[in-house]
Nucleic acid binder design. Structure first.
Lengths: 203, 203
DNA sequence: CCGCCGAGTCAACATCGTTGACCCATGGGT
DNA sequence: ACCCATGGGTCAACGATGTTGACTCGGCGG
């Protein structure tokens, strides 16, 4: 059988849903799995196609490019979800604790994949958009003091720095440290960016 | 002239120095220029070789790999130099001010190239080594309080987060902000990680 | 019954980092 | 004087990458 729609001819999924959706989701599932497992660069289009049992060209045909497939597949939010909803005074520690939680190994995978893909323009723009939507928009209006948007952006930068050192660089000092100390120290540093404590200098 | 050592046969540089050193430095110069201009991924071995007027295979033959060439070529220190030498109480602001200085566009280029190359193992290890040597070693012994090494590592993480948002992500909020505000806000946040000010909680 | 269209496949392209075979000039040993 | 080992250098090729164009089916509306 050199051509044509191979084996899944009588598949029920093909009959019920609009044609091609089954393979589309198969590609998406394979992409999600391989991007998480091997990162953006490590997961080749050909490997994703093979995992989905599909021709590599079809992947591009459906999604336009590897970058677009990545954007449609990987959740850039890192599942922050409801962490920001609690009291403003402890959000710094809560954020660090969330990312340090060993029960969430997926976060590490997603961040590595995201960082590898970050120098593609569309991914970069999506990250900026995501930062604005997920962090700045809900947090900035609640902040006291001047330059609230800037301070949220800087807090996000600081958070990203920790993830960078922890997940990409895998710095031995931070990795070996007790999580509670990191949460307290770094969380408070972020916290002071959001709700600064008055010092003598401010008088 | 299909083979042999082409045109530079009578070049004095070839005669004076050990053979091959002239082309070696030519490759290094081309690599420095192209890595800075186009980043690690953007600068291909072939382009570097062409810029140096040399066969691509020779580049690998001399340096082993593109990664090794990068490590021997690009200064990973970002020229921190004497910034850490001044008084400990203002080192946070000084660090931020150093990286924000528009008179140092090279820093941006080097950081982008470094970040792109960071997921190669040797480069990653070099960055860890460099952090330990340039930041932790000179700074940690001067810090008061507990966990000095960890706190320096976290300060480096925080600094990296700013560079990330600024140079890679090119976040519009931070980019548009007045440098003095960023220096003061973020610099003080780093400062509090290094020389924390006592709060009520610590009583 | 015809033609169209979307799903799918195949082969190919350009580019990448890297490798092996080869060449040539030089220099030291005999 | 010869020889050959050595090392700088070139060339062609390998395998892998993302992506594209030509092609072929099956099913559907006219």
């Amino acid at each position: 059988m050199p051509y044509g729609c191979a084996v899944t001819k009588t598949s029920d999924a093909r009959r019920l849903r609009p044609a091609g959706l089954a393979t589309r989701t198969a590609i998406e599932d394979a992409a999600r799995a391989l991007f998480a497992e091997r990162g953006f660069d490590g997961a080749s289009v050909r490997a994703i196609a093979a995992e989905a049992g599909v021709d590599p060209a079809l992947v591009i045909r459906h999604f336009g490019s590897k970058e677009a497939l990545f954007l449609r597949t990987v959740d850039t939010s890192l599942g922050i979800g409801t962490v920001l909803d609690g009291p403003l005074e402890t959000v710094g520690r809560r954020l660090v604790a969330y990312f340090l939680d060993p029960r969430r190994p997926v976060i590490r995978q997603r961040y590595v994949a995201l960082a590898q893909a970050a120098h593609h323009d569309q991914v970069r723009e999506e990250m900026i958009r995501h930062t604005a939507e997920t962090y700045v928009a809900p947090l900035a209006p609640r902040l006291p003091g001047p330059h609230p948007e800037l301070r949220v952006a800087l807090a996000v930068a600081q958070l990203g720095g920790l993830l960078n050192l922890l997940f990409l660089q895998r710095d031995p000092i931070v990795t070996a440290a007790e999580p509670e100390v990191v949460i307290a120290t770094y969380g408070d540093a972020i916290q002071r960016l959001l709700t600064p404590v008055p010092t003598d200098e401010d008088a």
